[in-house]
Write a protein that binds this DNA or RNA. Sequence first.
DNA 1: TCTTGTATCTCGTTT
DNA 2: AAACGAGGTACAAGA
Lengths: 230, 230
Amino acid sequence: MRIVFADCSVDYSGRLDAHLPRAVRLLMLKADGSVLVHSDGGSYKPLNWMSPPAKLEVKEPDESVDPEALEIWDVTAQKSDDLLRITIFEVHAEYEHDLGIDPGLTKDGVEAHLQELLARDPGAVIPGLKLVRREYPTPIGPVDLMCRNADGEPVIIEVKRVGGIDGVEQLTRYFEMLSRDSLLSGLKGVFAAQVIKPQARVLAEDRGFACVTLDYDALRGIEDPQGTLF
Amino acid sequence: MRIVFADCSVDYSGRLDAHLPRAVRLLMLKADGSVLVHSDGGSYKPLNWMSPPAKLEVKEPDESVDPEALEIWDVTAQKSDDLLRITIFEVHAEYEHDLGIDPGLTKDGVEAHLQELLARDPGAVIPGLKLVRREYPTPIGPVDLMCRNADGEPVIIEVKRVGGIDGVEQLTRYFEMLSRDSLLSGLKGVFAAQVIKPQARVLAEDRGFACVTLDYDALRGIEDPQGTLF
DNA sequence: TCTTGTATCTCGTTT
DNA sequence: AAACGAGGTACAAGA
């Protein structure tokens, strides 16, 4: 990996066009040809970049470029015609270091885990609810949970970490599809998420779906948050 | 900005838990307290990170940690209880450089621009179509374009850069809402995007909406006749 | 390989 | 400040 602190301007041309005026920035050149342009702030996202696989070509500036420019770095994607052009005015510092292959990241605790915890004991969230099966199949893809309530009526649950309008639409599609099944008469829908956005809640309730806010920590322990829904 | 090449392991605890085994990596410490952990490959996304504002605290390793560890770097978010713990085994190199404030990125060619180009001449995409107004209001938000076709019938257009199912749902909501307006009898819907995903196309056509693929360059060519038209 | 759904999404804009 | 939508989304899992 090569690290360069340089006074530069940057132009990207691809899906969109973007331009960075001249300033001092950090340029990160990775082994796979990818290039990242970072400022001293913002988030983890670079100001601009080129995804791998890519190729860096150093050119002399011609008369069409700013006369102060020292070098032109053209970074081209191998699989598209995207171009990241870095115009170098001054290199302040430059370092190179060998890193080797990274063993990679292990994660735990996202939506899949949330669904698993809810499946383990749906009755803890909605009293009387019993799991029929997870990933219950429909012609347009599986719905997260199929259950039966205390009265034996079928209940489908769509689980999200953040519940937005798109999640309600998804539940709606499953609901409409499964409503045609005479074996599932009296079908009810539940929208369950750690966070339910206001618009999504309004839409869900307007369509007759119950909304349930999930508490990850409470699920991981054992608890029943709220009263009777059906 | 401080750059450190170090042999380290990383643990993140926040919305989820994540772990990076011991390896040589690049650590980027920005002025706002944010920290990025990069490997020599992958995309522009770091292996792990802490978003600003954050605070770095260097601690001595106690007996509970690997005896080879030299230092513990605890990066804590100011607004949550997220913790990024970097266990340092060896520092290979360390550099610091002052960057100053970045003037920032200017973009061009995103969805807003696409809508603008289409609004300028809807007839170039669907013959006979004339613009009534952009951002036509409905109770659930504005629809991108309201037009009339050659027969004087109302046509609403939802514009996307990438047309997915969610875009079709959005168009559907507007369509159902506006269909109740007797002044808009015979209403038609058009789903327009640079790229329309297969499932979205099926759904849109199933609901009676026309699908139109937009060519950004061609639209821009209409606007700017100085291109290679002749 | 392509498609689909999630994300410690990030980032802008608007209310 | 909160919410909503777009993204050069990236990324992983499933078909």
